[in-house]
Design a protein around this nucleic acid. Structure first.
Lengths: 211, 211
DNA sequence: TAGATTGTTAATCGATTAACAATC
DNA sequence: TAGATTGTTAATCGATTAACAATC
């Protein structure tokens, strides 16, 4: 809501967590919640919660707290969940196939329209009802079907080349599972899920605590 | 090296990235690198790089920079990569199977010893040479095989119960792919990979940039 | 030695927490 | 109205950047 103001990444990364906890509260039929109560279950300070939410508008009411349903809806709106997103998965290997099978994405409004690969043996195979297609046709498909998000599940070596092709095809958002930092123009958003980095963080902490 | 000193999470999460870029430099036969040169390729400031590394010891040499091979080795040591880790995957669904198939983990020293599930139809199935076993036998298996890390790939509903069972079995590190924050004792490390949170961060940024 | 670059201290910046007036 | 809780400003804390003496 607040127009131009720059929101820090620290705040942005907390938003999905608010969204998730509010959904839980909604499922448990809880109508209202104060920043203090939310603090107890989500683990951020009440002060931080109020600061975070006030970046986007005054969703609360003094003396009452926040209306759970309204706040859930507002944060969803902030996160861009008012539209459905059309996605494609590039790389129909194990990870690509697993993500194509992961039905949780649909619940939040994401639909996988196709998988793409360069291996002709995979063309035509269907994961659920999602077909594996020839990477050569990706640009046409993206234009025709108005794809919003590309999910990059190739190996390290192919990732940058594929990213270039996606950018050339007009893609503005890449969810990158390849273990490499891809270079893209400034107006293209990349969100990395680097499994090895996550795993090494775990071993670091494990080692620190357990001698 | 520095014993007790508390290292901030911001620093810790940068360590795997140093490790990865140093590996690249090593593959390209580059022997030495200054903080300035590393800054250009990794994208942190030279000052930050020197600060980060000095949390763990003086790995550089004035007037020269850092020895790539030595620094790579030292950061690997800090991350706990001097030993191999035995892991098990809980939940032999799509994601569990995809992770069992993901051979990149082995390159860094992680071995998947078994998958566990509660669905009898899956018992005995092999992913590569990794067998799916009965969840009822998980405690015994963890003790017998000295498992270090459990990779949690169940659905949301089962995650906390499974986590409790793992903790009871002596597991001290959980890599959690279930979309929920699990509660564990303080000496147990949990590293979350929350795909939905990552995806919603992407849509937030996408929406902010592309109107 | 002179030049280069680290290790480290000081300065700045940004994020979190505390406090409290506004107000429901 | 009195009590509760927000919205918001001020204070604190921590992380990043700048600067420079130490030293290879």
């Amino acid at each position: 809501m607040n127009g131009k103001c720059k929101i820090s990444m620290a705040v942005i990364r907390r938003l999905p967590k608010y969204h998730r906890y509010l959904k839980d509260l909604l499922n448990r039929d809880i109508k209202r919640i104060s920043s203090k109560e939310l603090s107890d279950i989500i683990g951020f300070t009440a002060s931080q919660i109020r600061q975070d939410l006030n970046n986007f508008g005054g969703f609360g009411q003094q003396g009452y707290g926040y209306n759970v349903e309204e706040l859930y809806y507002e944060i969803g709106k902030i996160l861009g969940l008012t539209k459905d997103y059309k996605t494609i998965i590039i790389g129909a290997g194990n990870l690509g196939q697993a993500l194509a099978n992961y039905t949780n994405f649909e619940r939040v409004g994401f639909e996988v329209k196709a998988l793409f690969d360069i291996n002709p043996k995979l063309f035509g195979i269907k994961i659920r009802d999602i077909e594996v297609r020839d990477m050569d046709n990706v640009k046409e498909f993206i234009k025709d079907k108005d794809i919003d998000i590309a999910i990059l599940c190739t190996n390290k070596g192919s990732a940058q080349g594929v990213a270039d092709k996606l950018v050339d095809s007009g893609i503005k958002a890449i969810w990158n599972f390849a273990p490499i930092d891809i270079r893209v123009p400034k107006d293209v958003i990349v969100e990395n899920v680097n499994l090895i980095e996550s795993l090494l963080t775990l071993t670091y902490l494990y080692k620190s605590v357990n001698q």
